[in-house]
Nucleic acid binder design. Structure first.
Lengths: 113, 113
DNA sequence: ACGCTATAGGTAGACAACCTACATATGTAT
DNA sequence: ATACATATGTAGGTTGTCTACCTATAGCGT
């Protein structure tokens, strides 16, 4: 998949992997890899700024902790974040339907299906 | 649908509506509206630059004509354009599958389906 | 005659978001 | 000691879409 493909849909992806449990940035990247069967391998320079953006937008709340000597920032979905996730899912379904409708090859009128 | 949603997928949409027949810019916008059931209403400031970009990339070839006193630039898919359309379709299916896989709510292990 | 709408094409500048590349640091294995 | 995995982050560039304009003709209503 080309690098830019997730543009405009990254927020939904991040919110989705935080739905079941809070995760820190690195774990979010790994979760996206796992759930996508390896297709998504987002660079840290994409994910970390996005997390800060989502936190600034109050869709996530982040807390620092130290685990095995390493600093972690763990993000949890806020109530607004859960709401936004629902919205992202709805938008995705609409957009996906539009893409399918337009991309599907058109049959000439009267052509057998 | 939010305005920016098509980002990264516009090329595929345009190529798709040109697959069955050549069209000029205005007709492309109308075709996208029609095929999307009105969900896609792209501004000319988005479509015309995209057409020039696609022509520069040799995926489209454009020719001027005058119809009912108005200038038209009619775009036709080149061979490279058809090839690119196939690639866009493949990319879309992959991307769509990834989005579905990640966005789908996760069930806890052992939970009944 | 005048204005409005539909048709048809276009540019300029702003902005958002993602990318590449780099920087920092600790723990663990070789 | 060296390398890799873990973990977070910033700087700067690119790209594509958006908003907001501009130009022009045809046809309609008033």
């Amino acid at each position: 998949m080309r690098p830019d493909a997730v543009r405009g849909h990254l927020d939904g992806l991040i919110l989705a992997v935080l739905e079941d449990e809070p995760r820190h940035g690195y774990a979010i990247i790994e979760a996206l890899q796992a759930r996508s069967g390896g297709a998504l391998d987002l660079p840290t320079g994409t994910v970390y700024p996005a997390l800060r953006r989502l936190e600034r937008a109050a869709l996530l709340s982040g807390t620092w902790s130290t685990v095995a000597g390493r600093e972690r920032r763990t993000y949890t979905l806020t109530r607004a974040g859960r709401h936004a996730l629902a919205g992202q899912r709805a938008e995705w379904h609409e957009f996906s339907a539009v893409m399918d409708a337009v991309l599907r090859p058109v049959r000439a009128a009267g052509e057998a299906s």
